[in-house]
């Protein structure tokens, strides 16, 4: 049994590694297709000689395959190149922006997890009550409203009209409130919808009915029968939200001028700072893959059926 579990974990890790290599390759190719970074970095007034010299300095004059192999070699050694703009280690530039993004995403996801899961459970358990209906409607609205629109509305109300919170920046905890709510709202809505469906499905199952007619109290049924069985789809969605949060914060960070990775990504794409863009994509991809791996392993633990061929 233990051996089997180890085999499953090993196969999942191997799959994650292959995905990572494919992702690194895709990013490398896409960035080379996005135009000549030298032209953008030197501007329209640069001469052909200047461009050629700068291209040679950055190693962009070598054949694409050589560049790719060199890039892979550096990635394996833990070096993601030097930023064309900042003239510093690209990974270092990205990591210096990471704490602010983590602060934003952690706040947003905590808010989303608490409100989304609680709202989804309430909507499933009390579908006809005021609370249940309110949660269902709120989650639908949350799904329909785009982040940039919600951000602008919140900014208009809380920053401009009421003057309670700043419109942007990352000066204090007050600056975090609006971006976190904006980012958390969409995730909360997604979680609430999936939680409602998963809990409803579990509530309608025969094992819940069987527990009920055996005199087991509803609270115990909910905790011991419904939630453990509804946890797998909820965990999957939560994992996807966590994995996507690093890059998903791009719109919110841009609107609120939050100096995190999302903001850095937008400016780096604009300035064709390929090493920084590649570092961000690699980091975000790794986060997504690791989260998915954790979700896979968590699901296997929560639902033993997903890891068994025994009948």
């Amino acid at each position: 049994m233990r051996r089997k579990a180890q085999k499953v974990v090993a196969s999942k890790i191997a799959r994650a590694f292959v995905t990572l290599v494919l992702m690194v390759t895709s990013v490398f190719i896409l960035m080379r297709c996005a135009g000549d970074p030298v032209a953008v970095l030197l501007g329209p007034d640069a001469t052909a000689d200047m461009r050629a010299a700068y291209s040679g300095e950055l190693g962009l004059d070598r054949p694409i395959l050589v560049q790719y192999l060199a890039y892979l070699h550096n990635v394996v050694r833990g070096s993601l190149g030097v930023s064309y703009v900042y003239r510093q280690d690209a990974l270092g530039v990205v990591l210096s922006h990471l704490p602010l993004t983590l602060m934003l995403t952690c706040s947003a996801l905590t808010l989303a997890a608490v409100t989304g899961i609680a709202g989804g459970i309430a909507a499933a358990v009390f579908p006809s009550s005021f609370i249940g209906r309110a949660c269902t409607i709120a989650s639908l609205v949350g799904l329909c409203v785009p982040s940039f629109f919600l951000a602008i509305v919140l900014m208009l109300v809380f920053s401009i009209q009421l003057n309670w919170l700043p419109t942007g920046g990352a000066e204090s905890w007050r600056s975090l409130a609006l971006p976190a709510v904006t980012m958390g709202a969409a995730s909360s809505a997604v979680l609430a919808r999936y939680t409602r469906v998963a809990v409803r499905e579990s509530l309608d199952s025969q094992y819940v009915l069987a527990a009920f007619v055996r005199g087991i109290p509803f609270s115990r049924i909910l905790i011991h029968h419904v939630l453990p069985n509804a946890a797998v789809p909820i965990l999957t969605i939560l994992g996807l939200l966590i994995g996507g949060a690093v890059t998903g914060s791009t719109v919110v960070e841009t609107v609120f001028s939050w100096p995190g990775i999302g903001n850095l990504f937008v400016t780096s794409v604009g300035s064709r700072d390929i090493p920084v863009v590649q570092a961000i994509v690699l980091l975000a991809g790794t986060a997504m893959i690791m989260t998915n791996l954790a979700v896979d392993l968590g699901s296997t633990w929560l639902d033993p059926r997903s890891n068994s061929s025994e009948t």
């Binding site: 199952s205 094992y207 069987a210």
Partner: peptide, 20 residues
């Protein structure tokens, strides 16, 4: 009453909690 009258359902696997 429920403790004295017990059900046996149609689909035996579905009537058991898969995680317990």
């Amino acid at each position: 009453f429920r403790l004295r009258v017990q059900p046996v359902f149609q689909n035996p696997i579905d009537a058991l909690n898969p995680a317990t």
